[in-house]
């Protein structure tokens, strides 16, 4: 098993990479890389199916909406269907945005389904994350699947009672969409409260050292992963920083032109 600290590190790395990468190809590779641990975790088939449908829906809807409504210049038509034009730059932008979102979501989801809150706690506290932050992060992660399920239930409950058509009453529609979060947030708050009480009642003390039945142990695999992924992430960040300094006309090193070109074309 991979140490929870390594897992946290991986999720952080995915987040950093998602910010630093701008090419759809690179982000696509990142998404594939985040799928790898999920494959190892043997997530049940039904979740895979839902996940694939979810990912495709997010990517497709973002790409389509961005592709259709892209207004920046210059833009190049990819497909022209009468008055409807799918703009290539919009598709690209939609792809970038949705792939970023998917990569980070998948990494978070992987952490949520594979790591129990107590292990995460232990890891975060060992990493000297403040208690409050650790609790919030753990609770949030733990709630990802449950909140998803609840949001779905709320939408069903609303659909059964009728929903305002977007065209007929856009403001009502929007207000309702926001309102749908109300019960989910209320429920999430109660759940967080219950978890906090449970932890406290079981003697959890963020400040005191605690015995661990299964101590956190970073093995060779963890070391390998941290070093490998860390190197890749640090390299990407460094490259992006160098590139930003270059395009920001702050620092230009002629010898690094190949690097600049690589970042522009591939990252």
């Amino acid at each position: 098993m991979i140490d929870p600290r390594t897992r946290l590190f991986l999720v952080t790395a995915v987040g950093v990479l998602a910010i630093c990468l701008e090419q759809p190809g690179a982000l696509g590779a990142l998404v594939l890389a985040t799928l790898l641990p999920l494959a190892v975790l043997r997530v049940p088939g039904v979740w895979w199916r839902r996940g694939v449908i979810g990912v495709l829906t997010i990517v497709w809807s973002t790409v389509l909406s961005q592709g259709l409504f892209y207004a920046e210049q210059p833009r190049v038509a990819l497909v022209e269907l009468g008055p409807l034009v799918l703009w290539r730059e919009g598709v690209r932008w939609g792809l970038v945005q949705s792939l970023r979102f998917v990569a980070v979501s998948l990494a978070g989801l992987g952490l949520a389904v594979s790591t129990s809150p107590d292990r995460l706690y232990a890891a975060m506290l060992r990493l000297r994350v403040p208690f409050g932050l650790a609790l919030m992060a753990t609770t949030a992660l733990r709630m990802v699947p449950a909140v998803g399920q609840e949001l779905w239930t709320v939408r069903r409950a609303r659909a059964a009672r009728g929903r305002p058509a977007w065209r007929r009453a856009p403001w009502r529609w929007l207000a309702l969409e926001v309102g749908l979060l109300r019960p989910v947030v209320a429920r999430a708050w109660r759940r967080a409260h219950a978890l906090a009480e449970s932890l406290d009642a079981r003697g959890f003390d963020p400040l005191a050292p605690r015995a661990v039945r299964r101590p956190l142990r970073m093995g060779a695999l963890d070391g390998g992963i941290v070093v490998g992924v860390g190197l890749v992430t640090a390299t990407v960040v460094a490259l992006r920083v160098l590139y930003l300094l270059y395009v920001g006309e702050v620092l230009y090193v002629p010898a690094l032109r190949g690097v600049y070109g690589f970042v522009r074309g591939w990252l």
Partner: peptide, 11 residues
């Protein structure tokens, strides 16, 4: 030769 804009956004 280079692509030519079609006038409706395509090339």
């Amino acid at each position: 030769e280079a692509p030519e804009p079609t006038g409706t956004g395509g090339q």
